[in-house]
Amino acid sequence: MGMPNRKYADGEVVMGRWPGSVLYYEVQVTSYDDASHLYTVKYKDGTELALKESDIRLQS
Rank of each mutant, 00 (worst) to 15 (best):
L38P: 00
E48S: 10
G20D: 08
D45T: 04
W18P: 10
V22I: 12
L51H: 01
M15T: 04
P4I: 11
H37R: 10
V29L: 02
G2C: 08
V29H: 00
D33F: 02
V14M: 02
R6F: 02
T47D: 03
L51M: 10
Y32I: 01
L23W: 11
L51T: 02
D34W: 06
K52V: 10
K44I: 11
L49Y: 13
V41H: 01
K42N: 05
M3C: 15
I56C: 02
T30W: 07
Y43P: 01
M15K: 04
Q59F: 12
E53Q: 06
D55E: 11
S54W: 07
A35D: 12
Q28L: 12
V29W: 01
Q28D: 02
Y25G: 04
Y39L: 02
T40I: 12
G16R: 01
A35T: 12
V13Y: 13
G2K: 02
W18R: 10
Y25K: 09
G11A: 04
S31T: 07
Q28N: 05
H37L: 13
L38R: 09
V13L: 12
Q28I: 15
Y43R: 09
V13H: 10
D34N: 08
T47R: 10
L49W: 15
S36P: 00
M3T: 15
I56P: 01
V29R: 00
E26K: 08
L58P: 14
R57M: 14
E26Q: 11
L49S: 06
G16P: 01
G20V: 02
R17M: 07
G20A: 05
N5P: 14
G16Q: 02
S54R: 07
M3V: 15
S31R: 09
S54M: 09
L38K: 09
E26G: 02
Q28E: 13
S54F: 07
G2M: 04
Q59E: 11
S60N: 14
S31C: 07
L23E: 14
D34A: 08
D34H: 08
A50D: 09
Y24Q: 02
Y43H: 09
L51G: 00
E48Q: 11
Y24I: 03
E48G: 03
D10G: 03
Y39Q: 01
N5Y: 08
V22D: 15
L38A: 06
T30V: 15
L51Q: 02
L58Q: 13
H37P: 02
L49Q: 07
A35P: 05
G20E: 07
V14F: 02
L38I: 12
S31P: 00
M15V: 05
S31F: 08
D33N: 09
T47H: 06
S36E: 10
M15A: 05
E26W: 08
M3L: 13
T30Q: 13
R17E: 01
E12A: 11
K42V: 14
S60V: 12
G2E: 15
K7V: 09
G20K: 05
E53V: 06
A9F: 10
G11F: 06
Y24L: 05
G16A: 15
Y43K: 07
V22R: 12
V41I: 03
D33Q: 03
Q59V: 14
V22K: 12
L49T: 08
K42L: 12
K42S: 08
S36R: 10
S21I: 02
E53S: 05
K7Q: 08
G20T: 04
R17F: 03
S21R: 07
A50G: 07
Q59P: 14
R57E: 09
L23I: 13
D55N: 05
N5I: 14
P19A: 06
E12S: 08
T40N: 09
A50S: 13
D55H: 07
Y25I: 11
E12I: 07
W18F: 12
V41Q: 00
A9D: 07
T30S: 09
A50H: 14
Y25V: 14
M3F: 12
S60G: 13
L38W: 08
K44R: 10
G16L: 08
W18E: 04
A9K: 11
H37F: 11
V41P: 01
L49C: 10
D33G: 02
P19I: 03
Y43E: 03
V14R: 01
Y32V: 01
A50Q: 14
D45M: 02
D10N: 11
Y43T: 13
K52Q: 12
M1G: 15
